[in-house]
Design a protein around this nucleic acid. Sequence first.
DNA 1: TCCTGGAGCTGGATTACCAA
DNA 2: TTGGTAATCCAGCTCCAGGA
Length: 341
Amino acid sequence: MNERNWGKENNNKITIDDIAKELGVSKTTISRAISGKGRISATTRKRVLSFCEECGYKPNMIARGLAESKTYNIGVVLPNDSDLNEIPFFQVCLLGIIEMATSYEYDVVVSTVGADDITKLVRLVENQKVDGFILTRTRIHDAQVEYLSKHKVPFVVVGTSESSGVIQIDNHHVEACREMTSLLIMQKMKRLSFIGNNSTHIVSRMRYQGFIEGCELNQISPRSDCIYLDCNTRLMVEQAVDDILHKRIDCIVCMDDKICSQVLLKLATEHVKIPRDMKVASFYGSLFLASHNPPITTLEFDVKALGNAACKVLIDALSGVEVQQKTLLGYDINFKASTKK
DNA sequence: TCCTGGAGCTGGATTACCAA
DNA sequence: TTGGTAATCCAGCTCCAGGA
Protein backbone atom coordinates (compact mmCIF):
# COMPACT_ATOMS: atom_id res chain seq x y z
CA MET A 1 0.00 0.00 0.00
CA ASN A 2 1.26 3.44 -0.86
CA GLU A 3 1.27 5.15 2.54
CA ARG A 4 1.29 8.73 1.35
CA ASN A 5 -1.54 8.48 -1.18
CA TRP A 6 -3.48 6.13 1.06
CA GLY A 7 -3.39 8.64 3.89
CA LYS A 8 -4.52 11.61 1.83
CA GLU A 9 -7.24 9.87 -0.17
CA ASN A 10 -8.93 8.08 2.72
CA ASN A 11 -8.39 10.71 5.34
CA ASN A 12 -11.65 10.17 7.17
CA LYS A 13 -11.69 6.39 6.92
CA ILE A 14 -8.38 5.41 8.45
CA THR A 15 -8.82 3.31 11.59
CA ILE A 16 -6.33 2.11 14.15
CA ASP A 17 -6.80 -1.35 12.62
CA ASP A 18 -5.54 -0.05 9.26
CA ILE A 19 -2.54 1.57 10.92
CA ALA A 20 -1.82 -1.57 12.93
CA LYS A 21 -1.77 -3.71 9.77
CA GLU A 22 0.37 -1.17 7.95
CA LEU A 23 2.95 -1.03 10.74
CA GLY A 24 2.78 -4.75 11.56
CA VAL A 25 1.66 -4.29 15.18
CA SER A 26 -1.65 -4.80 17.02
CA LYS A 27 -4.30 -2.13 17.30
CA THR A 28 -3.70 -2.14 21.06
CA THR A 29 -0.25 -0.78 20.40
CA ILE A 30 -1.71 1.98 18.22
CA SER A 31 -4.26 2.83 20.91
CA ARG A 32 -1.55 3.01 23.56
CA ALA A 33 0.68 5.16 21.41
CA ILE A 34 -2.13 7.64 20.73
CA SER A 35 -3.54 7.78 24.27
CA GLY A 36 -0.19 7.68 26.03
CA LYS A 37 -1.69 5.17 28.48
CA GLY A 38 -0.24 1.73 29.15
CA ARG A 39 3.21 0.39 28.52
CA ILE A 40 4.79 1.11 25.19
CA SER A 41 8.38 1.82 24.17
CA ALA A 42 9.33 5.34 23.21
CA THR A 43 10.58 4.05 19.86
CA THR A 44 7.30 2.31 18.98
CA ARG A 45 5.25 5.25 20.15
CA LYS A 46 7.28 7.67 18.07
CA ARG A 47 6.97 5.39 15.05
CA VAL A 48 3.18 5.13 15.45
CA LEU A 49 2.61 8.83 16.07
CA SER A 50 4.80 9.74 13.15
CA PHE A 51 2.79 7.47 10.85
CA CYS A 52 -0.52 8.76 12.22
CA GLU A 53 0.53 12.32 11.48
CA GLU A 54 1.76 11.40 8.02
CA CYS A 55 -1.49 9.71 7.02
CA GLY A 56 -3.70 12.28 8.74
CA TYR A 57 -5.34 9.88 11.15
CA LYS A 58 -8.27 11.28 13.15
CA PRO A 59 -9.87 9.14 15.89
CA ASN A 60 -13.48 8.10 15.33
CA MET A 61 -15.19 9.87 18.22
CA ILE A 62 -18.31 7.72 17.97
CA ALA A 63 -16.25 4.58 18.41
CA ARG A 64 -14.24 6.17 21.22
CA GLY A 65 -17.45 7.21 22.88
CA LEU A 66 -18.83 3.71 22.53
CA ALA A 67 -15.79 2.23 24.24
CA GLU A 68 -15.75 4.86 26.99
CA SER A 69 -19.53 5.21 27.38
CA LYS A 70 -19.22 8.89 26.51
CA THR A 71 -20.66 11.09 23.76
CA TYR A 72 -18.00 13.82 23.71
CA ASN A 73 -20.87 16.30 23.48
CA ILE A 74 -21.65 19.08 25.93
CA GLY A 75 -25.16 20.49 26.17
CA VAL A 76 -25.50 24.25 26.51
CA VAL A 77 -28.90 25.41 27.70
CA LEU A 78 -30.09 28.91 26.84
CA PRO A 79 -33.32 30.57 27.96
CA ASN A 80 -36.01 30.23 25.29
CA ASP A 81 -37.03 33.84 25.75
CA SER A 82 -36.13 35.37 22.38
CA ASP A 83 -35.40 38.74 23.96
CA LEU A 84 -32.87 37.15 26.25
CA ASN A 85 -31.14 35.41 23.37
CA GLU A 86 -30.72 38.75 21.66
CA ILE A 87 -28.64 39.90 24.63
CA PRO A 88 -24.96 39.71 23.67
CA PHE A 89 -24.20 37.98 26.98
CA PHE A 90 -25.50 34.61 25.78
CA GLN A 91 -23.84 34.84 22.38
CA VAL A 92 -20.43 35.73 23.83
CA CYS A 93 -20.74 33.14 26.59
CA LEU A 94 -21.57 30.48 24.00
CA LEU A 95 -18.51 31.47 21.95
CA GLY A 96 -16.35 30.99 25.04
CA ILE A 97 -17.87 27.58 25.72
CA ILE A 98 -17.41 26.39 22.13
CA GLU A 99 -13.82 27.63 22.05
CA MET A 100 -12.90 25.65 25.16
CA ALA A 101 -14.95 22.56 24.20
CA THR A 102 -13.27 22.36 20.80
CA SER A 103 -9.81 22.49 22.36
CA TYR A 104 -10.72 19.37 24.35
CA GLU A 105 -12.26 17.57 21.34
CA TYR A 106 -15.81 18.05 22.60
CA ASP A 107 -18.70 19.32 20.51
CA VAL A 108 -21.51 21.56 21.73
CA VAL A 109 -25.22 20.83 21.49
CA VAL A 110 -27.35 23.94 22.07
CA SER A 111 -30.86 23.72 23.46
CA THR A 112 -33.35 25.99 25.19
CA VAL A 113 -35.63 25.84 28.19
CA GLY A 114 -38.49 27.94 29.49
CA ALA A 115 -39.31 28.82 33.09
CA ASP A 116 -41.43 25.68 33.50
CA ASP A 117 -40.76 23.84 30.26
CA ILE A 118 -37.59 21.74 30.29
CA THR A 119 -38.75 19.10 27.79
CA LYS A 120 -35.89 19.76 25.37
CA LEU A 121 -33.35 19.28 28.12
CA VAL A 122 -35.08 16.09 29.29
CA ARG A 123 -35.00 14.81 25.70
CA LEU A 124 -31.21 15.28 25.50
CA VAL A 125 -30.76 13.42 28.79
CA GLU A 126 -33.09 10.54 27.89
CA ASN A 127 -31.53 10.12 24.44
CA GLN A 128 -28.05 10.22 25.97
CA LYS A 129 -26.93 12.90 23.55
CA VAL A 130 -24.54 14.70 25.91
CA ASP A 131 -22.12 13.94 28.75
CA GLY A 132 -23.02 17.02 30.77
CA PHE A 133 -24.68 20.42 30.67
CA ILE A 134 -23.84 24.08 31.07
CA LEU A 135 -26.84 26.13 32.24
CA THR A 136 -26.60 29.80 31.31
CA ARG A 137 -29.52 31.17 33.33
CA THR A 138 -30.71 30.12 36.76
CA ARG A 139 -33.87 30.96 38.63
CA ILE A 140 -34.80 30.92 42.30
CA HIS A 141 -36.67 27.61 41.99
CA ASP A 142 -34.99 26.12 38.95
CA ALA A 143 -36.63 23.13 37.26
CA GLN A 144 -33.55 22.30 35.18
CA VAL A 145 -31.28 22.26 38.25
CA GLU A 146 -33.74 20.06 40.12
CA TYR A 147 -34.10 17.63 37.20
CA LEU A 148 -30.35 17.28 36.51
CA SER A 149 -29.56 16.90 40.21
CA LYS A 150 -32.26 14.26 40.63
CA HIS A 151 -30.98 12.25 37.65
CA LYS A 152 -27.32 12.69 38.62
CA VAL A 153 -26.41 14.31 35.30
CA PRO A 154 -23.17 16.34 35.54
CA PHE A 155 -23.75 20.05 35.02
CA VAL A 156 -22.25 23.46 35.66
CA VAL A 157 -24.15 26.68 36.15
CA VAL A 158 -23.03 29.97 34.66
CA GLY A 159 -24.31 32.12 37.47
CA THR A 160 -25.32 31.28 41.00
CA SER A 161 -27.58 28.53 42.27
CA GLU A 162 -29.16 28.28 45.68
CA SER A 163 -29.30 24.48 45.42
CA SER A 164 -26.63 22.60 47.34
CA GLY A 165 -23.87 20.73 45.54
CA VAL A 166 -24.16 22.70 42.29
CA ILE A 167 -20.92 23.69 40.54
CA GLN A 168 -21.11 27.41 39.79
CA ILE A 169 -19.09 29.85 37.69
CA ASP A 170 -20.04 33.45 38.23
CA ASN A 171 -18.83 37.01 38.56
CA HIS A 172 -18.64 38.98 41.79
CA HIS A 173 -22.04 40.56 41.08
CA VAL A 174 -22.85 41.72 44.60
CA GLU A 175 -19.35 43.06 45.24
CA ALA A 176 -19.12 44.72 41.81
CA CYS A 177 -22.53 46.42 42.09
CA ARG A 178 -21.83 47.50 45.66
CA GLU A 179 -18.51 49.08 44.65
CA MET A 180 -19.95 50.80 41.60
CA THR A 181 -22.87 52.19 43.62
CA SER A 182 -20.43 53.47 46.25
CA LEU A 183 -18.31 55.19 43.64
CA LEU A 184 -21.38 56.86 42.12
CA ILE A 185 -22.41 58.15 45.54
CA MET A 186 -18.87 59.38 46.23
CA GLN A 187 -19.12 61.41 43.04
CA LYS A 188 -21.98 63.37 44.59
CA MET A 189 -24.80 61.32 43.07
CA LYS A 190 -26.81 60.99 46.28
CA ARG A 191 -30.26 60.49 44.75
CA LEU A 192 -30.13 57.24 42.83
CA SER A 193 -32.93 55.42 41.08
CA PHE A 194 -32.70 51.73 40.21
CA ILE A 195 -34.43 49.92 37.34
CA GLY A 196 -34.29 46.14 37.33
CA ASN A 197 -35.91 43.27 35.48
CA ASN A 198 -37.16 39.77 36.33
CA SER A 199 -36.51 39.26 40.04
CA THR A 200 -36.95 35.49 39.77
CA HIS A 201 -33.52 35.46 38.11
CA ILE A 202 -30.78 35.03 40.67
CA VAL A 203 -28.44 37.45 38.90
CA SER A 204 -31.12 40.15 39.14
CA ARG A 205 -31.41 39.66 42.87
CA MET A 206 -27.64 39.76 43.34
CA ARG A 207 -27.24 43.01 41.42
CA TYR A 208 -30.10 44.58 43.37
CA GLN A 209 -28.53 43.38 46.61
CA GLY A 210 -25.22 44.99 45.59
CA PHE A 211 -27.01 48.27 44.85
CA ILE A 212 -28.73 48.29 48.25
CA GLU A 213 -25.48 47.40 50.08
CA GLY A 214 -23.65 50.18 48.21
CA CYS A 215 -26.26 52.70 49.35
CA GLU A 216 -26.23 51.51 52.96
CA LEU A 217 -22.43 51.51 53.03
CA ASN A 218 -22.59 55.23 52.33
CA GLN A 219 -25.36 55.91 54.85
CA ILE A 220 -27.97 56.45 52.16
CA SER A 221 -31.37 54.87 52.44
CA PRO A 222 -32.64 54.12 48.93
CA ARG A 223 -36.21 55.40 48.57
CA SER A 224 -38.61 52.59 47.73
CA ASP A 225 -40.50 54.84 45.30
CA CYS A 226 -37.29 55.27 43.30
CA ILE A 227 -36.71 51.54 42.85
CA TYR A 228 -38.38 49.84 39.91
CA LEU A 229 -38.09 46.03 39.93
CA ASP A 230 -39.55 43.52 37.48
CA CYS A 231 -39.59 45.96 34.56
CA ASN A 232 -39.82 43.07 32.10
CA THR A 233 -41.18 45.00 29.12
CA ARG A 234 -40.08 48.07 27.23
CA LEU A 235 -43.32 49.82 28.25
CA MET A 236 -42.61 49.20 31.93
CA VAL A 237 -39.11 50.66 31.56
CA GLU A 238 -40.52 53.71 29.78
CA GLN A 239 -43.11 54.20 32.52
CA ALA A 240 -40.37 53.95 35.12
CA VAL A 241 -38.32 56.63 33.31
CA ASP A 242 -41.41 58.85 33.04
CA ASP A 243 -41.89 58.52 36.76
CA ILE A 244 -38.21 59.19 37.52
CA LEU A 245 -38.26 62.40 35.45
CA HIS A 246 -40.86 63.80 37.83
CA LYS A 247 -38.56 63.28 40.80
CA ARG A 248 -35.29 64.88 41.77
CA ILE A 249 -32.99 62.04 40.72
CA ASP A 250 -29.24 62.43 40.02
CA CYS A 251 -28.58 59.12 38.32
CA ILE A 252 -30.50 56.15 36.90
CA VAL A 253 -28.76 52.87 37.66
CA CYS A 254 -29.80 50.15 35.22
CA MET A 255 -29.60 46.47 36.07
CA ASP A 256 -28.26 45.47 32.66
CA ASP A 257 -27.42 46.59 29.13
CA LYS A 258 -30.87 45.88 27.71
CA ILE A 259 -32.69 47.98 30.28
CA CYS A 260 -30.07 50.69 29.90
CA SER A 261 -30.52 50.86 26.12
CA GLN A 262 -34.30 51.24 26.62
CA VAL A 263 -33.70 53.96 29.22
CA LEU A 264 -31.37 55.81 26.84
CA LEU A 265 -33.96 55.70 24.04
CA LYS A 266 -36.66 57.02 26.34
CA LEU A 267 -34.43 59.83 27.63
CA ALA A 268 -33.59 60.79 24.04
CA THR A 269 -37.30 60.87 23.19
CA GLU A 270 -37.90 63.19 26.14
CA HIS A 271 -34.92 65.38 25.07
CA VAL A 272 -33.14 64.72 28.34
CA LYS A 273 -29.43 65.45 27.97
CA ILE A 274 -26.91 63.00 29.47
CA PRO A 275 -25.13 63.78 31.79
CA ARG A 276 -26.32 67.41 32.12
CA ASP A 277 -29.98 66.62 32.95
CA MET A 278 -29.64 63.01 34.06
CA LYS A 279 -26.74 60.68 34.68
CA VAL A 280 -26.95 57.02 33.65
CA ALA A 281 -24.97 53.92 34.63
CA SER A 282 -25.41 50.22 33.90
CA PHE A 283 -24.48 47.14 35.93
CA TYR A 284 -23.54 45.39 32.68
CA GLY A 285 -21.94 46.74 29.51
CA SER A 286 -22.12 45.20 26.05
CA LEU A 287 -22.34 46.02 22.34
CA PHE A 288 -25.78 47.48 23.07
CA LEU A 289 -24.11 50.39 24.82
CA ALA A 290 -20.67 50.46 23.19
CA SER A 291 -21.55 52.95 20.46
CA HIS A 292 -23.69 55.29 22.54
CA ASN A 293 -22.78 58.95 22.72
CA PRO A 294 -21.97 60.01 25.35
CA PRO A 295 -20.24 56.77 26.43
CA ILE A 296 -22.04 54.99 29.29
CA THR A 297 -20.54 54.15 32.68
CA THR A 298 -20.75 50.37 32.99
CA LEU A 299 -19.63 47.33 34.89
CA GLU A 300 -17.58 45.09 32.62
CA PHE A 301 -17.52 41.31 33.00
CA ASP A 302 -15.37 39.10 30.76
CA VAL A 303 -18.23 36.93 29.51
CA LYS A 304 -16.10 34.91 27.09
CA ALA A 305 -13.78 34.01 29.98
CA LEU A 306 -16.90 33.02 31.93
CA GLY A 307 -17.87 30.61 29.12
CA ASN A 308 -14.30 29.31 28.91
CA ALA A 309 -14.18 28.67 32.65
CA ALA A 310 -17.59 26.98 32.80
CA CYS A 311 -16.66 24.60 30.00
CA LYS A 312 -13.25 23.81 31.47
CA VAL A 313 -14.74 23.05 34.88
CA LEU A 314 -17.37 20.76 33.34
CA ILE A 315 -14.79 18.87 31.28
CA ASP A 316 -12.59 18.51 34.37
CA ALA A 317 -15.56 17.19 36.34
CA LEU A 318 -16.40 14.72 33.54
CA SER A 319 -12.77 13.53 33.60
CA GLY A 320 -12.93 12.86 37.31
CA VAL A 321 -10.79 15.84 38.25
CA GLU A 322 -11.81 17.48 41.52
CA VAL A 323 -13.22 20.94 40.86
CA GLN A 324 -14.09 23.95 42.98
CA GLN A 325 -17.75 24.22 43.97
CA LYS A 326 -17.81 27.92 43.15
CA THR A 327 -15.52 30.01 40.97
CA LEU A 328 -15.88 33.79 40.90
CA LEU A 329 -14.32 35.89 38.16
CA GLY A 330 -13.40 39.56 38.43
CA TYR A 331 -14.84 42.75 36.98
CA ASP A 332 -13.91 46.25 35.84
CA ILE A 333 -15.75 49.49 36.46
CA ASN A 334 -15.52 51.85 33.50
CA PHE A 335 -16.47 55.39 34.40
CA LYS A 336 -17.42 57.27 31.25
CA ALA A 337 -19.03 60.57 30.29
CA SER A 338 -22.58 59.50 31.24
CA THR A 339 -21.85 60.04 34.94
CA LYS A 340 -19.46 62.98 34.67
CA LYS A 341 -20.37 66.26 36.36
C1' DT B 1 -46.10 -18.93 4.27
C1' DC B 2 -45.79 -15.85 7.87
C1' DC B 3 -44.50 -14.37 12.32
C1' DT B 4 -41.66 -14.34 16.41
C1' DG B 5 -37.67 -14.60 19.14
C1' DG B 6 -32.97 -15.60 19.95
C1' DA B 7 -28.24 -15.73 18.49
C1' DG B 8 -24.62 -13.61 16.40
C1' DC B 9 -22.38 -10.01 13.84
C1' DT B 10 -21.08 -5.09 12.88
C1' DG B 11 -18.77 -0.53 13.58
C1' DG B 12 -13.82 1.51 16.11
C1' DA B 13 -11.69 2.14 20.22
C1' DT B 14 -10.37 1.01 25.07
C1' DT B 15 -8.56 -1.92 28.56
C1' DA B 16 -7.85 -6.07 31.75
C1' DC B 17 -5.20 -9.77 31.51
C1' DC B 18 -1.55 -12.58 29.83
C1' DA B 19 2.72 -14.17 27.31
C1' DA B 20 7.33 -13.50 25.45
C1' DT C 1 9.50 -4.28 29.85
C1' DT C 2 6.90 -4.62 25.87
C1' DG C 3 3.23 -5.81 23.10
C1' DG C 4 -0.72 -9.09 21.88
C1' DT C 5 -5.39 -11.33 22.72
C1' DA C 6 -9.84 -10.99 23.71
C1' DA C 7 -13.61 -8.96 26.10
C1' DT C 8 -16.31 -4.97 26.22
C1' DC C 9 -19.15 -0.91 25.04
C1' DC C 10 -24.40 -0.58 22.47
C1' DA C 11 -27.96 -0.23 18.99
C1' DG C 12 -29.33 -2.05 14.90
C1' DC C 13 -29.23 -5.41 11.63
C1' DT C 14 -29.28 -10.21 9.49
C1' DC C 15 -29.89 -14.98 9.79
C1' DC C 16 -32.03 -19.05 11.24
C1' DA C 17 -34.94 -22.17 13.80
C1' DG C 18 -39.37 -23.18 15.50
C1' DG C 19 -44.28 -22.60 16.00
C1' DA C 20 -48.91 -21.29 14.28
